[in-house]
Simulated assay, not measured.
Amino acid sequence: MVEITSKDNEKIKSTKLLLKSKNRNKESKFIIEGYRILTLAFEQKDIIDYVFINEDFENKEEHRKFLKELEDANIKVYKTTNKNFKDMVDTENTQGILAVVSYEKKTLEKNLTDDDKYIIVLDRIQDPGNMGTIIRTADAAGADAIITLKGCVDIYNPKVIRSTMGSIFSMNIIPAERDEMLSTLKSKGIKIVSSWLNTENWYDTVDYGNKVALVIGNEANGIDDVIAENSDLLVKIPIYGSAESLNAAISSAILMYEIKKSLV
């Protein structure tokens, strides 16, 4: 373990830069913070670049055991002051441990395979909490891949990472342009299903087929008109009360599980 006290240390400065999306994209790295999510990332050791802890993290025996596991795996651990550590995370009540993690830049051509038969398409989902919850739900519902379209919040935003509860490491998440997504799914014979208010198709009364891409639209404006026009099926969830609509994460969960029933 290496101790760093200076706030001007290059390792601390480069880590802080990853709090901004443009730097995460440039370096293909992001920050995860918290003991539990680090234990999940550790299951895929090769993605962890290095770890920082604060002055208090070693106070618990289970934490000391985890640090020993990290060092046995030749993962570099740095210890710094509580103040320096706080400057590298976006949470008020930190757990005292973070890691910098590398990720692969994915494309539809390379990362969407013929075995992927259940896909979630996210169209301009902008709320980090919604994004993280949808990723977590897609994982739980057995989706094979997630496609994020231009205008979506950065999936490596710290708030998104926390909301995924570790599913960020197990889901195949691929960024794409709208037209590329449409042409790719059509060429693979995947039925494009969109959640849409102006349809007579109730979500639990239709045939989804055996290869499905479910599109979830922007929280305020719904699904892009071009996507709706190119969808094979439009469905809606009934609203029984006076609410205008359902939250994007809630509606996506209802639809994901209904579609999964037709695929098993």
Rank of each mutant, 00 (worst) to 15 (best):
Ala73Asn: 10
Ile119Pro: 03
Val89Asp: 04
Leu38Glu: 03
Val264Asn: 14
Met1Val: 13
Lys29Asp: 04
Glu180Arg: 08
Ile155Gly: 05
Gly142Arg: 06
Ile12Pro: 00
Lys159Tyr: 06
Lys29His: 05
Ile190Ser: 05
Lys68Ile: 08
Trp196Tyr: 15
Asn221Asp: 14
Glu244Asn: 14
Asn84Gln: 10
Asn111His: 13
Pro158Glu: 05
Leu40Met: 08
Asn23Thr: 09
Ala243Asn: 11
Met88Glu: 08
Tyr78Thr: 05
Thr137Cys: 05
Ala248Phe: 00
Asp127His: 13
Asn59Thr: 15
Ile254Asn: 02
Ser252Val: 06
Met131Ser: 06
Asn130Phe: 01
Gly222His: 13
Ala138Lys: 05
Thr80Ala: 04
Asp116Pro: 14
Asp114Lys: 15
Lys79Ala: 11
Thr164Asp: 06
Val77Ile: 13
Lys110Ile: 10
Tyr118Arg: 11
Ala143Met: 08
Thr107Asp: 04
Asn9Ala: 09
Leu149Thr: 13
Lys86Arg: 14
Ile216Leu: 15
Met88His: 06
Gly166Ser: 07
Arg24Ala: 00
Leu234Gln: 13
Glu104Phe: 00
Glu27Ile: 03
Pro238Gly: 09
Asn130Ile: 05
Arg24Ile: 05
Tyr103Lys: 06
Leu38Ala: 03
Ala138Pro: 08
Phe85Ile: 12
Thr15Met: 02
Asp114His: 13
Thr81Tyr: 07
Ile31Ser: 02
Lys29Asn: 09
Ala143Gln: 10
Ala228Thr: 15
Phe85His: 12
Ala41Ile: 02
Asn82Val: 11
Leu246Tyr: 15
Ile31Glu: 01
Asn247Ala: 04
Gly142Lys: 04
Ser187Leu: 00
Ala145Val: 08
Phe30Lys: 02
Thr81His: 10
Thr15Tyr: 03
Glu200Phe: 13
Leu234Gly: 11
Gln44Val: 06
Glu92His: 14
Arg124Val: 01
Met181Glu: 08
Ala253Trp: 03
Ile48His: 01
Gly129Arg: 07
Val235Glu: 03
Leu67Ala: 06
Leu19Glu: 01
Glu33Ser: 08
Ala213Gln: 10
Leu112Gly: 07
Glu177Cys: 06
Tyr78Gln: 04
Pro175Asn: 09
Asp87Trp: 10
Ser28Gln: 14
Arg136Phe: 01
Thr205Ile: 02
Arg124Leu: 01
Thr15Lys: 03
His63Gln: 09
Glu200Thr: 15
Lys260Leu: 02
Asp87Phe: 13
Asp224His: 12
Ser242Pro: 00
Glu200His: 15
Lys106Ala: 11
Gly217Pro: 10
Leu122Lys: 12
Asp204Met: 00
Val206Ser: 12
Tyr35Ser: 06
Lys86Thr: 08
Lys65Glu: 12
Glu71Ile: 12
Asp139Glu: 14
Gly142Thr: 12
Tyr257Pro: 07
Leu108Lys: 09
Glu229Trp: 00
Met256Tyr: 03
Tyr35Asp: 07
Leu40Gly: 01
Asn74Thr: 10
Asn218Tyr: 05
Asn130Asp: 08
Glu180Asn: 09
Lys106His: 10
Lys79Met: 09
Asp207Cys: 03
Cys152Val: 09
Lys20Gln: 13
Asp154Gly: 10
Lys29Arg: 14
Glu229Ala: 15
Met171Asn: 08
Trp196Lys: 13
Ser163Tyr: 00
Leu98Cys: 03
Asp49Asn: 07
Ala228Phe: 00
Val206Trp: 02
Asp204Thr: 02
Arg136Gln: 05
Asp204Cys: 01
Ala220Cys: 07
Asn23Ala: 06
Met171Phe: 00
Ser28Gly: 09
Asp56Gln: 14
Ile37Leu: 01
